[in-house]
Structures are given as structure tokens and as C-alpha cells.
Design a protein around this nucleic acid. Structure first.
Lengths: 345, 345
DNA sequence: CTGAAAGCGCTTACAG
DNA sequence: CTGAAAGCGCTTACAG
């Protein structure tokens, strides 16, 4: 006896289903794809064979011949999958993709341009229909080939460099201005800026927003009050420590990013200054309301950013060829206490 | 003039590369796959053509004919991609997969068994080589077909039900016992248990660990001290509130899960009891050290769990057919303050 | 309503 | 070292 499909370890194919049900390949294909024009009787026999064999359609093989060639999968490139902002974007993208029957491949860039190119290549090899990219520092002109091949693309959180594509951004400059103005409104004139790598566009935008208010309100300007390139908690903590040792220390801090905010809080705690130094952070974080004082932040809405980006991508995949768009998602100031501390004296 | 490959919008194929370089399909295939036996000269011409055309290998087509049939992609199913525990597992899996040149498809289950089946089907359709699953409540016997078809599988965080497969778990029972014993060591006899859905195996294990110590140490046993089925922050908060209104309230709380811990803390804060009620949480969380009091926890190591699971999966994909294994990853008590509060009086 | 032949982009199994 | 033919699992484009 020759082995039948379900005795072998390999997967049953459409051929096995055809043999068992006594239908042709094409008829099985029709049933599997829900195409009309198969008698109820035959369709039922085919379905029974599918169930009996545990047949599972091969999407890749199907796509190879199919004219539209969609793989029903998209790629998502974020800073770091384990980071709450990226994770919230990811979840929102997943939810939209799911409604479209599309699977999501995801990868972390760790601010590494080489890694970005590798991941794009890896996803391209797998013929993703589209890409949602939170780009690393570096330019995106290399994506031209990819787009020419028909891959849809949307950028999130940061705009692409030397490349034009749909982009969904938080209102970084405005949000930072709001944070800084809020501190000024509470009487602060020496407001420090603690920011991430200057090469990151969001950091640059947030610094602009801070500067806008410093100039407009005539606040104290001093090079010591501005610290850039704080990319992790430890750097932020020591920078804050140094800042508070100045002869004339700031009375308020604007922290342009999550990890910076946490580093600054650690430092203020250690110095016992957390109840007298005002602080506003850019980007909300879990438990910000349970710290003492609770932390005032400019919240971004990563889930909203992810959702819009995914919808934009599917609009493009649906054939929309209108000019490139840029969505700006507003931020919101959440007053919790740390930003409402008045300057001493 | 007929359009050439790079003028059309579609992707160039191996055929276009062959035509441009003057080599045969097979030779181009050899170069693309790094197979030996191509003269330097020809290989160089092929590479030049690839670069000029922006040719990108089609992994699906390649796999269709290839004997091993590997898609170099795996699927990861977690509770919720946006949850820190799941996200940490995901990142660890990504890092291992990356070293193997494998891409990761990920999806969230939201404790929904139907969703689990849908995602497995969606990933199966895409012929993932393996699956790493943090299963939802419900049984996993439906995976038998999938495994017969050759898909490797590893379970994380929770064991599969009615299905045997490699599994990587935290030491839930032991960790919960350690937490409870720690509270007893600090003089507590009325220790409440606040837990997640009893149907979740980790919750059941943790309750066992709590019970082990209650019995061994002869601690107070009262039905009011045990609250199950707290699946979110709000439920945990109100359950804690009710607990503290008892005629004889607990002097210490063991919170068997992250969100429960946070809900309990919110409640204690609101009641002004956070500095006099001892609390140990299962599973660490960001900023636990910055709360007041800082939160003592039994830490799990999700990155470690994810890494071991991924390595296990690749071991199986590499052909290992030894019997199913179960890895237990130890937990660690981190004393930060909340767990070291002595009972009043 | 049903199916036989050709072909998607690639690799296998050969032959030179 | 190099390549022509057949075939992977499916769909397209036809024909009945």
C-alpha cells in the first residue's frame, strides 16, 4: 500500500483533497476560496475531505499565481518592541490589520540604521504588502526600490528623510511649547530642557517648542539650562544631578522624553528636591499618577497614531493614489501635580 | 519597444536577472543562494544585474520548491502585545529569531480562545516554521493537526491543556510561597490573597503557593481573605477596598499579578493605608521602586522566559526529537519596602 | 456547474 | 563550471 497524505508527515495538498473528494483541483480551489459555481453536493464532499485530511491552504503558493499577489501580511518597524510607546503603536496596528485579515511582522530597530535596512530587506524577501516604519536616525532614500516594487509605506512618530511618504506624527513642537508655557504660567523663569539625541527629529521638534516659549516669554536663557543627547535613564539622572548643583539651578524641568523623565525624577528624589522642583514630561507613562508628586505630562496617543497609520496604509493598499499626507495627532497636557509646583521664594 | 522589467511596476524576477547578465536561471539561483560552483566572472555579472534591477529574491517561491520548505518565519501568540510582560517575551524571542535569520509574526489573544484558534490558522496559512504560544484559557488539543504537519511548538508562561509540548514557565507556586512566607516572616498572620481568574493556570499555581504557606505556618484562614477572578485594575481596587473595610482586615496583601498589585496600591493610597499595610506583588513592574513605599515584588524574568522558549523552538527546528521538556525559570524576591512593613500593634 | 492545461518564481535532479 | 527540463501548490484563462 502506498502511503496516503494523512499518513505521511507532510501537509496534505489541494491535490490530496481533490483525490479524496473526487473533484478536480479547480473545484477544490473554488471551494477553498469561496468562489461561486460549485454545486452544494460537490462543495460538501470537498469540505468533508478538507476536514478529514486537516488540509490547510497554502497562502504562498496561492499568491504566486494570483494576479494581485497580496501576501496579506505587513511589516512593522519600531524603535523597540518592548518599549511602551512602540508596543501601543503595535497593538493598534494589529487591531486594524486583524480587521483586514492581515498578519503583522514586527521588528526592533534600536536606533540602528543598518538594522532598519536589514529588517526592510527581510520583510521584502517575504513580500509584505506594506510597511509601517518608525525610522531610525539616518535617511530612508533606500526605500525607493521597495516602493517602486509596489510596497505601500507609512511612517509613524518620525518623518522619513530624503523620502516622501504618508506620515503620522504627534504634535511635538506644540506639545513641548504647551509644557514649557505651563511651567512659565506657574511662575518659573529658569526652566531647564532635558532632551534626547539631537539627531532624532522628535527631539529636535520638542526643543523647538521649548525654545519658542523661552523666547516668546523672555525666560532665562543660559547654555547650562539646555542638555541634549540623553538617550537613557542613567544619562538623564546624572545630567539632572549636575543641573541641580549649578550656582543658580533651574526651578523647573521640561523632560522631552519618557526615559529622561524617569531619570530626572530619580535624581530629584535622591536630592530630596522632588517636591520643590517643578517637572513636566513629554509622553505619558504607567503609574505617573501614583508617584509623589504625581507627574504632569504632555501625553501622546500612541494607540491613535498606530491606528491612523494602519488605516492610512490600508487606504493605500486599497488603491488610493492621492498625494502624500501628513497627519498630526494632538497632544494633551495632563496636570497631576509635579507641573504645578511654584518656584521657591 | 517592449517594456523591460525595471520599467514595469512589478518586481524583477530571477528571469530578468538571467536575461540581463546572460546567465541561466540556475546560475542566478546559485549566486543568490551562495552556492558554490560559479566562476567569479559570471557571479560578478549576475551580482551587477541584481543591483541594477533592484532584484529581490522571492522567499515564498523559493520555498515552494525547496525540499525543507522552511519559511524562516515563526509565529508568537501572547496575551497582549502591549502588556509589558508579553512585550518583554516578544523582544527576547525577536533577538533569538534574528540570529537565525527568522522573522516573527505576532498577535494578541486577549484571553480569547477563539482568537487563539484564528491566529494559529492565520499563521498556519502562512506556513510559519514554528509557534511560541502563551495560551488563552481553553484547551490546545486542536493543535495536533498543526504539529502533525511539522510545525514546531513551544509554550510560554502557561502550560498547554490536553496537549503535550515543550513549555517554559516561571516558578509560580514557589514564587508565591516565597512572597507569602516573606510576609509571615515580618509578623503577619492575616494575609489576604488577591488573584486573577482561577481558570488561568498561573493564578491557580500562585494560589497554591500562598495556600502552602498559610497551612505550613498556621496563618489565619478565612474565606474573606481570599479573592479570586480580579482580571483588571478596577476590580482589584474595589476588592481591596472591600477587604480593608472588614471588621478584622488583613495586615498584609499578596497580589498575584501586576494589574492586581496596581489596583491594590491605588486602593490603599486612597484609604491612606499604604504605609501601614504590607504588600508583595507577583511580577515586577516599571517604577515599582519609585512608589512610596517602594513595592516589594516577586520578579519573573520574561526576557529569560522568552529567550529559553525561542532557543527551545530552534532546537526543535534543528531536528531535536528528544522527549518534551519543561523549563522552570526561578523567580526572585526583590525587597523594596512595602513587603517589610510590620503589622500594627 | 466542472475540469484540463499552462504558468506564477523559484529549486531539484540531471546532464553535459 | 553551466544550464535545460520538470515540478513545488496553487490560480488563471479557457473550454466544455
Amino acid at each position: 500500500m502506498t502511503p496516503t497524505a494523512d499518513q505521511r508527515r507532510s501537509r496534505p495538498t489541494i491535490r490530496d483533497v481533490a483525490a479524496l473528494s473526487g473533484a478536480s483541483l479547480k473545484t477544490v480551489s473554488r471551494v477553498v476560496n469561496g468562489e461561486p459555481g460549485v454545486s452544494d453536493d460537490l462543495a460538501e464532499r470537498v469540505r468533508a475531505a478538507i476536514a478529514q485530511l486537516g488540509y490547510r491552504h497554502n497562502l504562498s503558493a496561492s499568491n504566486l499565481r494570483r494576479s494581485n499577489g497580496k501576501t496579506a501580511s505587513i511589516g512593522l518597524l519600531v524603535g523597540n518592541i518592548a518599549n511602551p510607546f512602540s508596543a501601543a503603536v503595535h497593538r493598534a496596528v494589529e487591531d486594524v490589520a486583524r480587521r483586514h485579515g492581515v498578519a503583522v511582522l514586527a521588528g526592533s530597530l534600536d536606533e540602528d540604521h543598518e538594522r532598519e535596512r536589514e529588517l526592510v530587506a527581510a520583510f521584502s524577501l517575504r513580500r509584505v504588502d506594506g510597511l509601517i516604519v518608525m525610522p531610525a536616525i539616518g535617511d530612508q532614500s533606500y526605500l525607493a526600490d521597495e516602493r517602486r516594487a509596489g510596497t505601500a509605506m507609512v511612517f509613524v512618530d518620525r518623518p522619513p528623510t530624503f523620502f516622501d511618504a504618508d506620515t503620522v506624527l504627534a504634535d511635538n513642537r506644540e506639545g513641548a511649547a504647551t509644557a514649557t508655557a505651563h511651567l512659565a504660567d506657574h511662575g518659573h523663569r529658569r526652566i531647564a530642557y532635558l532632551g534626547d539625541l539631537q539627531l532624532i527629529s522628535t527631539a529636535a521638534e520638542r526643543f523647538q517648542g521649548y525654545t519658542d516659549i523661552v523666547i516668546r516669554r523672555g525666560l532665562d536663557e543660559h547654555p547650562d539650562l539646555v542638555v541634549h543627547d540623553l538617550h537613557d535613564v542613567d544619562l538623564a539622572e546624572s545630567a539632572t544631578h549636575a543641573l541641580m548643583q549649578l550656582a543658580d539651578p533651574p526651578t523647573a524641568l521640561f523632560c522631552s522624553q519618557n526615559l529622561v523623565t524617569i531619570g530626572a525624577i530619580r535624581s530629584l528624589r535622591r536630592l530630596g528636591l522632588n517636591r520643590e522642583t517643578a517637572l513636566v514630561g513629554f509622553d505619558d507613562f504607567p503609574l505617573a499618577d501614583l508617584l509623589e508628586p504625581a507627574v504632569t505630562v504632555v501625553a501622546q496617543f500612541p494607540a491613535e497614531i498606530g491606528r491612523i497609520a494602519a488605516e492610512e496604509l490600508f487606504r493605500r493598499l486599497g488603491g488610493d493614489t492621492t498625494p502624500t499626507r501628513r497627519h498630526i495627532v494632538p497632544t494633551a497636557l495632563i496636570e497631576r501635580g509635579s507641573g504645578e509646583i511654584a518656584p521657591l521664594g
